[in-house]
């Protein structure tokens, strides 16, 4: 079982390594969106610091959405999704593996770029630490919930837009707690409460989302 999960992850990492263009698009999108805000709002340090948590988190949500429409779509088109569903292993592991691979490929890089962008907004070092921590806990949620959306909209025309409409509302708790943690660190209150809630939300998603995504996949390929 674990072997199957690891094979699914290894496969997606290998495919991402062969297609660096797809991979980089999402990271550049994140950097671009975040960098637009200082240009639009103006260079007042106080203002930038205040909007930074929200901006970074919203940009992270959008960047993950950008790559999610491809999560199952290519495997669906070339028939390998069918073959993976015909594996003796349960489909829930496939859904979990794909989501984890998505997190490794698209979530972790966001986490690593975030400190640089945090400096651009003039965030102090300890707040940047909290920002990274909140992204570390929060980005798996984005991949897991996104997997559900990607499975539901598989094979639909205009699936990308539908995916956005479907998944963004589900991201709201992650956004509130994630940005809230950074906010409270910034204002001197401890970020612990928000981080705990974010972690609780992550655990809940981890338990539920793969099952829903697996069920959705089965319906979508019929």
């Amino acid at each position: 079982m674990l072997h199957f999960l690891l094979t699914v992850i290894r496969r997606d990492l290998l495919l991402a390594a062969r297609r660096k263009g797809d991979w980089l698009t999402s990271q550049f999108f994140f950097v671009m969106v975040v960098s637009m805000f200082p240009l639009g709002i103006g260079p007042e340090p106080e203002m930038l610091r205040r909007v930074a948590p929200g901006v970074m988190w919203v940009a992270a949500l959008l960047a993950s959405l950008l790559s999610l429409s491809r999560l199952f779509a290519e495997d669906y088109r070339d028939g390998s999704l069918e073959q993976m569903l015909l594996s003796p292993e349960p489909p829930v592991l496939l859904a979990l593996g794909k989501a984890l691979a998505h997190w490794l490929i698209y979530g972790i890089p966001l986490l690593l770029i975030a400190p640089v962008l945090g400096l651009q907004f003039g965030l102090p070092a300890d707040v940047i630490g909290v920002l990274m921590l909140s992204l570390l806990i929060g980005t798996p949620v984005l991949s897991l919930l996104g997997g559900v959306g990607a499975a539901l909209t598989l094979g639909l025309r205009g699936g990308g837009v539908l995916l956005t409409l479907l998944i963004l509302p589900l991201y709201v708790p992650a956004l509130i707690f994630g940005a809230g943690a950074v906010d409270s660190a910034l204002s001197g209150l401890g970020p612990e409460a928000n981080l705990s809630l974010l972690a609780a939300f992550e655990v809940l998603t981890l338990m539920v989302a793969p099952w829903v995504a697996a069920a959705a996949l089965k319906i979508s390929i019929e």
Partner: peptide, 16 residues
Amino acid sequence: HRSMAYIGHVNGIKDD
């Protein structure tokens, strides 16, 4: 599924 193999219209191989 362990004893069955299926080939559909699409080949199920990755281009990359």
